[in-house]
């Protein structure tokens, strides 16, 4: 469903992504890991063209995201995105955060958008927070709202950019629980994370990136029990040590 084909990307003279390729099937959960600065966040931001690529192609369900003239807003609206620092709109209440895209992009009526928003808030367990501003919520609550905001657009796939790395330890599980549930329901997901427990639980495959390259793509159990590259072994030993 998502096909990343040999993409390259530069920041000035820094080569962030080096001929990366990856295919994600419908309903598949893929975890992308690797040391910081390895390009994993950039890679998933390329999927909905938040970061343009310099060469190569990315196709999402027949739509070439990287082609000139592609209507990016419509492509992006179909791919949910969750950010490291939540990025809720601070000047809007929780429920307005969930309604904005539905009204402005999908042209839903206010009533329809509100109903959808309310049901999603209930789903992530935050119905009672609907009329608060994001700053009044804990980090874990904000991230659950952010997931609900993405789901409000009825996405065909979800991208997560280190969704738990800005959270206090005791809030990580409430966010992961929502994500696990989503995965179980068959959502196609690309998740950049260091949460290896989450990976083992729901990921079908794990992608290991290092220095802008996709070093390893392997079935989850294979990756953890028998990583191919030395870099992946080293990375795993560090990250599983604590």
């Amino acid at each position: 469903m998502i096909k990343i084909d040999n993409i390259d990307k530069w920041y000035d003279d820094f080569h962030v992504l080096k001929s990366c390729s990856l295919e994600v099937e419908r309903g598949e959960v893929i975890v992308i890991c690797g040391p910081s600065g390895s390009g994993k966040s950039t890679l998933i931001k390329c999927v909905n063209a938040l970061e343009p690529v310099d060469s190569g192609r990315i196709v999402v369900e027949e739509t070439d995201v990287t082609a000139k003239g592609t209507k990016l807003p419509l492509v992006r609206a179909r791919i949910g995105m969750v950010f490291q620092h939540f990025e809720l709109f601070p000047h809007k209440t929780v429920i307005e955060n969930l309604m904005m895209g539905q009204i402005k992009v999908l042209n839903r009526s206010r009533d329809e958008a509100r109903r959808k928003a309310e049901s999603l808030l209930e789903r992530v367990g935050l119905s009672d927070q609907a009329d608060k501003y994001p700053s009044a919520l804990s980090g874990g609550q904000q991230q659950r709202v952010a997931i609900a905001r993405a789901l409000a657009m009825d996405p065909i796939a979800m991208c997560f950019d280190e969704p738990t790395s800005a959270l206090d330890p005791e809030m990580i599980s409430e966010v992961l629980d929502v994500m696990v549930e989503l995965a179980r329901e068959g959502m196609t997901m690309m998740v950049v994370t260091h949460e290896m427990g989450f990976a083992r639980k729901v990921a079908r495959r794990v992608v290991f990136m290092d220095q802008g390259e996709v070093k390893e793509v392997a079935a989850t159990e294979t990756f953890f029990n028998n990583p191919e590259t030395d870099r992946a072994k080293e990375f795993l030993s560090k990250i599983l040590a604590h």
């Binding site: 909905n48 950010f83 620092h85 601070p90 904005m100 993405a150």
Partner: peptide
């Protein structure tokens, strides 16, 4: 305004112009 906050607007499908109208300018 953080780049990712604007990205969050783009990610739900707002056009660059709409990110100005609904996110960047109001904030």
């Amino acid at each position: 305004i953080r780049k990712d906050l604007v990205n969050a607007g783009l990610a739900i499908g707002l056009t660059p112009l709409q990110t100005y109208l609904y996110i960047r300018l109001p904030i």
